[in-house]
């Protein structure tokens, strides 16, 4: 497993356990020793992850082995049927989307996919979408609206792709229209920030009735590195910027920007993806139940009112 720098002491202990297991045969004394070490690992994990700094959370949110959108779709959605293209220019694999069943009911799922190895990362452009991606998202949201199907968005992107072709095809307009679609549809829209919620590229999918965030996910107007290079004039200050931006799920919940923090397994989602899927499934289910039976126009009005108030009531 990829080890983050602050996890080194944990990794060392885990390495020792592996070594012991390797050396052991069926020796009973070693099982004791392994148990003792494992308890130590758990304790260390618990204490480390209980007080992660915003910068450490940023690293966890970007952990290469953290489950990505397609992992959640595989685990939570039956009969997933991907739908492609913006009907205008092309198919952007940085945003995946399609119809499927969540706990028996049809949903439209739309998510940023970062990819999990070199090949898939290239295929999905590292989760950085171009205008065609946001136009596809908009198309799928509108379709869901027509069929009365709830929309589930899974947000995990460093941001929209900064490139000449993306600008030429109207990146700004595509994002604006995607936000507009989020705020316009007359079906429940549940957004989950599963990893990195990067700026305009994230809000394009995240103006939901309920916005959930995994415990160690981040959501910010700019990356800590970008903020540091502009305000501190040094990329080195990313730690300070992460601190100042208040980008953790816990801070955003206090600010009233997100509705719920979904707990992750000990040591982060990547240490126990199955448990993460189960917890998130329950959270999504309960968010959907809260909105079940609410008339479409009311759903839309409530969503709009919620975002219209952002910053107005004065945060804590």
């Amino acid at each position: 497993m990829h080890v983050l720098d602050f996890e080194k002491p944990i990794a060392e202990l885990e390495g020792k356990i592996e070594e012991l297991r390797h050396l052991a045969g069926g020796d009973v004394n070693i099982a004791d020793e392994v148990g003792r070490l494992q308890a130590k690992v758990d304790k260390l994990l618990r204490s480390t992850y209980a007080k992660l700094t915003p910068w450490q959370k940023t690293q966890v949110a970007r952990h290469p082995e953290r489950p990505h959108a397609l992992d959640y779709i595989r685990a939570l959605i039956e009969d997933f049927t991907p739908l492609a293209g913006d009907r205008c220019f092309g198919e952007d694999r940085a945003i995946v989307g399609g119809l499927g069943r969540f706990r028996g009911s049809t949903v439209m799922v739309i998510g940023n996919e970062k990819g999990s190895d070199t090949e898939s990362r290239l295929k999905h452009n590292f989760g950085m979408a171009k205008p065609e991606g946001y136009r596809k998202a908009r198309r799928l949201m509108e379709m869901a609206g027509r069929f009365g199907v709830p929309v589930l968005t899974l947000v995990d992107t460093a941001g929209a792709y900064p490139g000449v072709d993306a600008e030429a095809r109207g990146q700004a307009e595509a994002i604006a229209r995607s936000i507009e679609a989020c705020l316009d549809i007359r079906v429940p829209l549940i957004s989950v920030v599963i990893g990195e919620g990067g700026s305009g590229g994230a809000i394009a999918l995240a103006a939901g009735n309920a916005v959930l965030m995994l415990e160690h996910a981040i959501y910010s107007v700019i990356s800590p590195e970008g903020c540091a290079s502009i305000l501190w004039r040094s990329g080195e200050a990313a730690k300070d910027a992460a601190e100042a931006l208040r980008l953790t799920a816990q801070d955003l919940h206090k600010l009233g920007v997100i509705d719920q923090v979904v707990p992750e397994p000990l040591g982060g989602a990547h240490r126990n993806p199955d448990l993460t899927f189960k917890t998130l499934s329950l959270a999504i289910d309960s968010a959907l139940r809260d909105l079940a039976g609410v008339e479409g126009g009311v759903l839309r009005a409530r969503r709009r009112e919620k975002f219209l108030q952002m910053g107005r009531t004065g945060p804590v």
Binding site: A176, I179, E180, C182, L183, D184, S199, G200, A202, I203, A207, Y219, S220, V221, I222, C227, I230, L231, A244, L245, R246, L247, L252, L255, V257, R304, F307, L308, Q309, M310, G311, P315
Partner: peptide, 19 residues
Amino acid sequence: MQEGILSLMQMARTTVAVE
């Protein structure tokens, strides 16, 4: 940037307003 996520939320907020 100095208003962090709340400045990002203004994107959705102003969108509702002009709609």
